[in-house]
């Protein structure tokens, strides 16, 4: 096992080892290894746990963004003052697993794993987050939404490492909500992240667990912007909003739920978030 102590050393290790397995929080990788997967011959484990620069987030007030190291844990994202800066990501983080899981699992791992049910991933897509991806060949900046190409699939090259995620600081309501069989310790059957930008008068909706990747819903975003900024009465727009969300959704039947339930639930979650946005606006005026 190689445990690099800097990102540059990690990139060298990725480039030097033809067969490797990246280990961050271990909350997905170790499950595979515990349940029968074995390290291949000559496979090198590269552990990211000793790289301080990956495990912190930094606030750039002038640039109005936060840069989150890829190995920042869910627990770190649920602590003050991060919660006030990016509520949607903090809320998503708080719904992940249990305290034990949140202490270990990382935001970069959530992106690289690219599960359509990824709670952090859903929040990042709603935020239009940018990933910084590095290898010894260079650095590229890519929208998180474009990094994930399908269920558990990304366009990351084997020698590339997600180093950090840039998230904009915005004024306006943010929220994440999901449904599952319990309040805790649950993989979402459907999830929705909402980010309202009061300055740009824009709204973004990201939908989790209802497609091969996290989906944005431009049609629902237009309806929601009309409600929040155009004075459309919510009562009139509610069914329109749910319909637009459900039209965007492309859910499947699987062992966790049915496509029909997911399609229904995702519409309910989206309208619930818009109601919360209106309530928070009423409270702040």
């Amino acid at each position: 096992m190689i445990s690099p102590q800097t990102v540059d050393d990690a990139l060298d290790a990725l480039s030097d080892t033809p067969v490797h397995r990246l280990l961050a929080g271990g909350t997905d990788e170790m499950v595979k290894l515990n349940h029968g997967a074995q390290l291949r011959q000559f496979e090198t484990v590269i552990s990211l746990s000793r790289i301080p620069e990956l495990s912190m987030w930094t606030l750039d007030t002038a640039g109005r963004q936060i840069t989150i190291g890829a190995a920042v844990s869910w627990s770190q994202l649920t602590e003050a003052p991060f919660v006030e800066h990016v509520p949607v990501l903090a809320q998503a983080a708080r719904t992940v697993g249990s305290p034990q899981i949140r202490n270990a699992g990382t935001i970069g791992g959530n992106v690289a794993t690219a599960s359509p049910a990824g709670d952090g991933l859903c929040a990042l897509v709603a935020l239009d987050a940018m990933a910084t991806v590095r290898s010894t060949r260079g650095t590229r900046r890519v929208r998180v939404a474009e990094l994930t190409t399908g269920p558990k699939r990304t366009n990351l090259e084997p020698d590339e490492l997600i180093v950090s995620l840039d998230v904009p600081l915005t004024h306006g309501f943010q929220g994440y909500t999901k449904v599952g069989v319990r309040n805790a310790m649950v993989i979402s059957l459907a999830g929705v992240a909402l980010v309202v930008d009061d300055d740009r008068q824009s709204v973004s909706f990201a939908l989790g667990s209802v497609g091969p990747t996290i989906l944005r819903s431009p049609a629902a975003e237009t309806v929601a912007a009309n409600v929040l900024f155009g004075g459309t009465h919510l009562g009139d727009a509610m069914s329109q909003l749910a319909a637009a969300i459900r039209k965007t959704a492309r859910p499947i039947d699987d062992h966790r739920s049915t496509a029909a339930y997911r399609r229904h639930a995702v519409g309910v979650l989206a309208t619930r978030l818009i109601e919360r946005a209106l309530i928070s606006r009423g409270a702040s005026q």
């Binding site: 280990l23 929080g25 990788e29 170790m30 290894l33 484990v45 552990s47 034990q100 202490n103 270990a104």
Partner: peptide, 24 residues
């Protein structure tokens, strides 16, 4: 990582020891 029966502290942080690679 579902059941918590293997909980330990790693540097004072509660974790499921089944999800921690020992050599790391």
């Amino acid at each position: 990582g579902e059941c918590g029966s293997c909980s330990v502290l790693v540097d004072g942080v509660l974790m499921c020891s089944c999800l921690v690679m020992a050599a790391s």
